[in-house]
């Protein structure tokens, strides 16, 4: 049962991490109209940040650890997406071998 709840806490951490990252992106997404949207952006960041804090505070120790791991795991995963995508694109680009293919 403990293990199951830890898994649930981990999953909850992932979910809230997703929400938090999306809220933080709002700063860039609405920068063009930040004078009108600042409240919305701030509210999103504060709401999810507060939720994360409250949830973590309310959780008992083993679940809190699992929850934090969930938060961090997704954060690392998300931050690695773009570099991995860049590596993939750089490695698979079909225009790489210019000098070799010119006669084909």
């Amino acid at each position: 049962m403990t293990l199951l709840l830890q898994v649930v806490a981990f999953a909850l951490g992932i979910y809230l991490s997703i929400r938090m990252i999306a809220a933080l992106h709002g700063i860039a997404d609405f920068w063009y109209m930040i004078d009108k949207a600042w409240l919305r952006v701030l509210a999103g960041v504060l709401a999810w940040g507060t939720t994360i804090g409250v949830v973590a505070w309310l959780m008992a120790r083993p679940y809190q650890t699992a929850f934090v791991w969930g938060l961090l795991t997704y954060l690392v995963f998300y931050l690695s997406l773009l570099p991995l995508a860049r590596l993939y694109v750089a490695g698979r680009r079909t225009d790489r071998y210019i000098e070799k293919d010119v006669s084909a």
Partner: peptide
């Protein structure tokens, strides 16, 4: 889900003009 979740949330309610950048 994990790859696209953030994108889907970001595009849930974009105002007109969000793509002008």
């Amino acid at each position: 889900f994990l790859v696209n979740a953030v994108l889907f949330l970001r595009t849930r309610s974009l105002p007109d003009g969000a793509l002008d950048s």
